[in-house]
């Protein structure tokens, strides 16, 4: 399940409450029929969490990190074999005897995630696992998440990066201001929250007041997106005598981004590091 929301929407808070790191003001947390607030130790055995910030022991080797977190979560003799299995799953098998302090950023990120799944949790929660990760790491993490889900684990994956959500092809939950606003598959959400709109580029400055009138947001160099009951004809009418400023106009196809906009009223910010990684990937391709 992809948990989609802006920064500050409540994604990390929700995961922290489920993991017992925060105490909720009200409500209950049910994990596989277990009340996690009343029996946190049993609940901890069922779940694995990789918090947003990388948390590993730099002074220990990859193997030692994996074995420790496995043992902490109740693994005994099997922790050694599980460490190897998880390392292989995340492309760390060649690095098992390397100190974590000597890993690259992407490798450290993979180890961070691997530590959360070493004890085969029934529920794995990954909080923005690909923030700051390179393209290869991102693909490996997404593959690992898919494999875990195929193996029967429930995976909650928070992100505000839409291409990842699309590539996971999982159920999506949209959260804003601590409230779940929509949930369903990508197709269901698009069908339920279709928005019309246009994307357009202009030469020079957008005529005064038009951005507000169109409720347009800038999405690139001199390129804007306006959603609502708007088509090309209406756009040209609103531009009036300034229509010759338009250099490109395109009808918007409903996608997750327009769904998010329709549901929350906000545009989803992209993570700059991920955009850069994608750009680098596209440039190298």
């Amino acid at each position: 399940m992809s948990l989609l929301g802006r920064n500050g929407a409540g994604k990390t808070t929700m995961l922290s409450i489920i993991a017992g790191l925060l105490v909720p003001d009200a409500g209950t947390v049910q994990l596989d029929g277990l009340d996690a607030l009343k029996d946190p130790e049993s609940a901890a055995r069922l779940l694995g969490i990789a918090p947003q910030e990388t948390g590993i022991y730099p002074i220990l080797t990859v193997r030692q990190n994996l074995e420790f977190f496995g043992e902490l979560s109740g693994l005994k003799a099997s922790r050694k074999s599980r460490a190897s299995e998880v390392a292989e799953q995340l492309g760390l098998e060649q690095l098992l005897d390397r100190k974590a302090s000597q890993l690259s950023g992407g490798e450290a990120r993979r180890l961070h995630t691997a530590c959360a799944l070493v004890h085969r949790p029934r529920l794995l929660m990954l909080d923005e696992p690909t923030v700051g990760a390179d393209v290869a790491t991102r693909l490996q993490l997404i593959d690992a998440v898919r494999q875990l889900a195929d193996d029967g684990a429930a995976v909650v994956y928070t992100t505000h990066y839409l291409p990842e959500v699309e590539s996971l092809a999982a159920d999506i939950v949209i959260i804003d201001d601590g409230q779940i606003l929509a949930r369903g598959t990508q197709d269901e959400l698009i069908a339920a929250h279709q928005l019309r709109g246009v994307r357009f580029s202009v030469e020079g400055v957008l005529p005064h007041g038009l951005a507000e009138e169109l409720n347009a947001v800038i999405v690139g160099d001199s390129t804007y997106r306006a959603v609502g009951d708007l088509d090309m004809r209406e756009l040209l009418r609103l531009f009036g005598s300034n229509a010759d400023q338009l250099t490109a106009v395109e009808s918007l196809r409903p996608d997750l981004e327009t769904v998010f906009l329709a549901v929350t009223g906000h545009r989803l910010e992209a993570d700059a590091s991920q955009d850069e990684a994608t750009s680098a990937e596209e440039a190298s391709a």
Partner: peptide, 8 residues
């Protein structure tokens, strides 16, 4: 936080 998540 990872230690705490173990509910120890």
């Amino acid at each position: 936080d990872r230690l705490r998540a173990s509910a120890a």
